[in-house]
Nucleic acid binder design. Structure first.
Lengths: 241, 241
DNA sequence: CGCGAATGTTACGGGACTGTGACGGCATGG
DNA sequence: CCATGCCGTCACAGTCCCGTAACATTCGCG
């Protein structure tokens, strides 16, 4: 589900020109997005330290660190690797387009742009990168996962998870009861073409179970020969009457 | 079922550079695929006139007709429209990535590539395009089989099945009332090119009946001299013509 | 009733699958 | 520079599953 379906898509805007920033903000709000505006790459990184937005809109020309450098950095870090990025560039900098796409941007927009074009591209990128998770709190059995605050609670008790454990649990909680093979989990939690051993999934499932503690570790079920799934009713052994 | 599960996936390789072609062939064979190599787009079209492969690996730079043109043509024809395509492109042609994906490719690989990466992407695309087992819940008599959750219930009571028992029951429930010989069951449940004793099927049928319990064991019927079938109405002897 | 073929039933050894602990690499932060 | 935390891989152990063999039973038929 796109966040544009359930709530507003959060868009991080990195733009030093106040006028353009206001235009972007206005356009995005009118288009149903929730903009978060900063002016420098450094501020952007600070903002990205918290909850990840659904999309980053980055100006090519920034004071200090350039938009390209920021893009490359975001692509280099696991946490932000899959964050959709749109580059804003001025007319006549066509050569930069190549560099921008090389740097990992998903799309680019040439200034001056029409609000219509901006929203079209934003929606397009959001749609393409969409199969994400609805904002809000997922609840399965004794588990509660806040996708915005990045918090997980077991019977109300807050626990700490590593990034991978969190994404794994989030994915499973988004589709409870559904069995996923190790490969499917790698595709959906780690990313499409990442070459990692199947068994690595087992390790993270174990670490996740340990982190969940005895109260909830059995919520993550092993389906022998098939994969793993989340069981909504723990303590219901499938034994016969 | 993907061919990668039962049998080797056939991959058409369109690459004019002999060295790279050999590397591709070697990598694919090691990865469990069955490559068919040609050097030009024309030869590729000829090869595609026969049995369709499971995947096409097309070099971007080809003598004469380009890989993009070939991709577009394949996407334009009904017969090859759904054929998964991966584009091979050289470093520095990143801009072509967009054109390639817009042209209808499912993925692209940048040369030079590692064998591991190649196989990861090939497998990923094959998985993504693999025909799925019909999702949903199959119901026959007192039996209910959830293909997604991998759960089986007898009169609402959940039971545990081993992987083979589950596949066997799933196949029978997908085609209730129809008689299958032991060999047919081996082909469909175990996979095509497996040589296993016929009697093994009997064993698993028994184990399945035991697992189903007295309430439903008679749903799996023996047709003497023919094989096994699932009877929708237990207690209703099949009326032959 | 007797016989052979087909099927049901039991037992068992090998192997596949998963759980578990440990290790080294890598990036981050001081 | 080191310390820390996270991650991916390896190796080992336990468990479960599966295919085969062997024996028992039932069915079909004369």
């Amino acid at each position: 589900m796109t966040r544009s379906e359930a709530g507003r898509a959060q868009v991080l805007v990195v733009e030093d020109d106040k006028g353009i920033q206001e235009l972007l903000r206005f356009t995005l709000v009118c288009g149903g997005c929730q903009p978060l505006c900063v002016e420098t790459a450094e501020q952007a990184e600070t903002a990205l330290g918290g909850t990840l937005p659904d999309l980053a809109l980055i100006d090519w020309m920034l004071p200090g660190k350039s938009g390209l450098a920021l893009t490359r950095k975001l692509r280099g870090e696991r946490r932000t690797r899959r964050l959709p990025i749109i580059i804003l560039t001025a007319r006549g900098e066509e050569a930069d387009r190549v560099a921008g796409l090389e740097g990992g941007a998903d799309d680019y927009i040439v200034k001056p742009f029409s609000p219509k074009e901006l929203m079209a591209r934003v929606q397009s990128v959001l749609r393409r990168c969409a199969p994400q998770f609805a904002a809000g709190t997922l609840t399965v059995g004794p588990l509660a996962l806040d996708t915005v605050a990045h918090e997980v609670r077991v019977a109300g008790q807050r626990i700490n998870l590593t990034p991978t454990e969190f994404r794994l649990l989030r994915f499973l909680m988004a589709n409870p009861g559904r069995v996923y093979s190790r490969q499917q989990l790698l595709d959906n939690v780690w990313g499409d073409h990442v070459y990692i051993e199947d068994r690595t999934v087992d390790i993270h499932v174990r670490r996740l179970r340990v982190a969940l503690g005895p109260a909830a570790e059995h919520v993550v079920e092993t389906v022998r020969g098939a994969g793993y799934k989340l069981c909504a009713q723990p303590g219901t052994p499938p034994s016969e009457a």
